[in-house]
Simulated assay, not measured.
Amino acid sequence: MIIQKERVSHMFRERIRQAYSRLSPNKKKVADFLMEFHHDAAFMTASQLARHLNVDVATVVRFAQDIGYAGYPALAREVQSLVKGELKAAHEFAAGKAKAESLFVKIMLEERENIEQSLMNIPADTVQQVVAILKAAKNIYIIAQGEALDLARFFATRLRLQGLQVETLSGDSVVLALALSGLTADDVVVGLGHSKFAVETAGAIRFARERGAKTVGLVSTHASPVAHVAESVILCPSKSMTPVLSFGSMASVMDAILQMIVLEQPDKAAEQQANFEQAYIELVKEQRENFVALEKDIARAG
């Protein structure tokens, strides 16, 4: 029953996602605000929301109708239901009354929200453009700071399995200078802006653009400094019930990009996988033979 209630209260997000491409610029402002700041919007009237976004009240009303509601009050009730559920969950957790199972469901539903928001906010042509420049790149440099560096390494490893030349870099200025000093227009620099503190990563992206390299930003919010300097920006929301930001949507976006690369060049992907497996078999065989020889040497010496 918990899951069913959650699904009902999340329906407005799915409706927005499905209608988003058809909305006017002002209606998209309403959609973006509801998706990113639903706590603030939940208890606003149509006129209050219109004033906040500097649009007409009629725009807010027509937006609600365009996504399948009789009017704005019906949409507002659904958003309020979601917020009340989140507040109740937070209260139960603070009081130590939340059961592990229901808490897990709520966390997973929030991860789903992050992915749904990515789907709504990422233009299809932007993703296709990113896939194209990664496939064509001479060298790919993925830059990240802090805990995002491990996610960058994960992405780099999977891209290397597709035959791409990829290097992972931290935000250290010396490391960046050594790696990026020879950048050309054939190279691509990807910056992970998982938090508002990715200043060094943003600086590297700006440097890369000045050198003529193509740049991509995977960011958790448009407020990230990386979002302000990268040519192609993909939003990967990281909203979480805790102070620890979620990596779920960013990892999902990375996986989707990788899968698109594989699907667009299936023969090359199959060849790369076969080469990897053959190399692994040969390496393991050689190591086993060396180990057997070492055992014999030890036995003779004994």
Rank of each mutant, 00 (worst) to 15 (best):
I3H: 09
S246I: 06
L178C: 10
F12G: 09
D172P: 02
E147L: 11
M250Y: 00
P25E: 10
N54Y: 11
A213E: 06
S173M: 05
K29A: 14
A270N: 02
G191I: 07
L180Y: 02
A202V: 02
Q273H: 10
L23E: 05
S47L: 14
L151R: 09
V174I: 13
H91W: 12
E36I: 11
V61W: 07
S24A: 13
F247Q: 04
P123Y: 03
K29G: 00
D172M: 04
F291K: 13
A144C: 07
S24W: 05
F207N: 11
E147C: 06
L49R: 05
Q129K: 15
L34R: 00
Q162R: 11
Q259M: 12
I122S: 11
V8Q: 09
Q80M: 13
R17A: 15
A156L: 07
V131P: 05
S9V: 07
A70S: 14
R112T: 10
E167F: 08
N26F: 01
H194Q: 07
M260D: 05
V83E: 08
A227D: 04
F155W: 02
F155A: 11
R15S: 08
D40W: 06
P243Q: 09
P237E: 12
A132W: 04
Q4E: 12
A208E: 03
D186A: 14
F37D: 15
G163M: 03
I3V: 13
G163F: 00
Y72P: 01
G217V: 03
G163H: 04
Y69N: 04
A274S: 07
C236A: 15
A58M: 07
E111M: 06
S238K: 08
I143L: 11
A204G: 09
A124S: 14
L294Y: 07
L164K: 14
Y20G: 07
V292T: 12
Q165N: 15
A293K: 07
A124W: 02
K99L: 13
E147R: 14
R22P: 00
S173F: 05
D187N: 10
S246A: 14
E101Q: 10
L103V: 08
G171F: 01
G71R: 06
R51Q: 13
A156W: 03
R153H: 01
G203I: 04
H222A: 11
A274I: 01
Q272G: 01
P123N: 10
L176W: 01
L218M: 12
D150W: 06
A98G: 13
R209Y: 04
T59S: 11
E6D: 12
L87N: 15
Y72G: 00
R158A: 09
K285L: 03
M241Q: 11
E271C: 04
L103Y: 08
Q48K: 09
K214R: 14
G212V: 05
T215L: 07
I107D: 00
E286G: 08
Q273S: 13
Y20M: 03
S240P: 01
K138W: 04
L53V: 10
M44G: 02
Q278H: 04
Q259L: 15
